[in-house]
Design a protein around this nucleic acid. Structure first.
Lengths: 149, 149
DNA sequence: AGAAAATATATAACATGTTAAATTTATTTT
DNA sequence: AAAATAAATTTAACATGTTATATATTTTCT
């Protein structure tokens, strides 16, 4: 049997944890979880998103996101309104203070990302992104052709 | 600001999810979570581990592992005894039926791993492992030298 | 129009992730 | 040896992950 250490999911997890360690202190200083930060960032890039679109962009399942938005709503960092064209849809936006918070935090967040790039090397980082994207792509392709059978 | 899509933690997460998708149905068929399976695998490779060693090997924090072991214990897949040399330490072992379960499941698990290797390419997979290891290594080195300052 | 099916979201229930605090046993200090 | 400190593990509390189910609204069908 393959040795236990050679586990792709675990290697990916370890890498993710190592990277996140660099960001979490900064997030915690502003009382945000990585997920909450992802939501705020996504809304900053594209103001006023349906919650299901937000779910895709942030790679969060609806039940998690539902709770996260409720939390951010009570903290007045985001607001929601019901879509006119379809009353089932919630549209989430940053409030002014949510917008402010992102702008306050972004520079340090960017600096930390730049530091990781410098430590690891720009070329290697690009290569890693490419490999990860290709892995996902190929697995999804394979899933599709399995479904067609 | 860097575009939201270019997020290393999220790329790592997506890749991990895509890979896990391949294993989860098989695990669920045997009522195991990925974490529970990791624990059983670790114990199969090295019978009788202190729970803190198990925690490192499986990359699980103690509170999570504590609950997982309790669950596996009630299902009689693992057993625990108190270490003679230090009564604070729990030593966890596979029961015979735990051992059996790993041997029953391992072939299919290996087959799925082989399939992923084939889809993605052996060389690329090795390269990915190397990059992930190197990323973790370099981040840890950088952490150390920061502490020394 | 009214019933049935589909869609968007939320809630429920339970496992896991995560930090802090509690508990128990070992070790060190005085 | 008694008190203080440290170490291993568990429990608590709360956020998130995950599957199933419920709710509300829209669309489709007849």
């Amino acid at each position: 049997m393959r040795t236990f250490e050679r586990s792709l999911p675990m290697s990916l997890l370890k890498a993710r944890e190592a990277v996140m360690k660099r960001f979490i202190p900064h997030l915690r200083a502003h009382d945000l979880s990585p997920q909450q930060w992802r939501v705020l960032r996504a809304l900053y890039d594209n103001e006023g998103l349906e919650i299901s679109t937000l779910s895709e962009r942030c790679f969060l399942l609806m039940p998690s996101l539902s709770r996260i938005v409720q939390n951010l709503e009570t903290r007045q960092l985001v607001s929601r309104r019901i879509a006119e064209h379809d009353q089932r849809c919630s549209i989430i936006s940053l409030t002014p203070s949510g917008h402010e918070l992102v702008e306050l935090m972004a520079p340090e967040s960017e600096a930390r990302y730049a530091h990781i790039t410098q430590i690891f090397g720009y070329g290697k980082l690009e290569l890693l992104y490419e490999l990860l994207d290709e892995l996902v792509e190929k697995l999804e392709e394979a899933d599709k052709s399995t479904l067609e059978k």
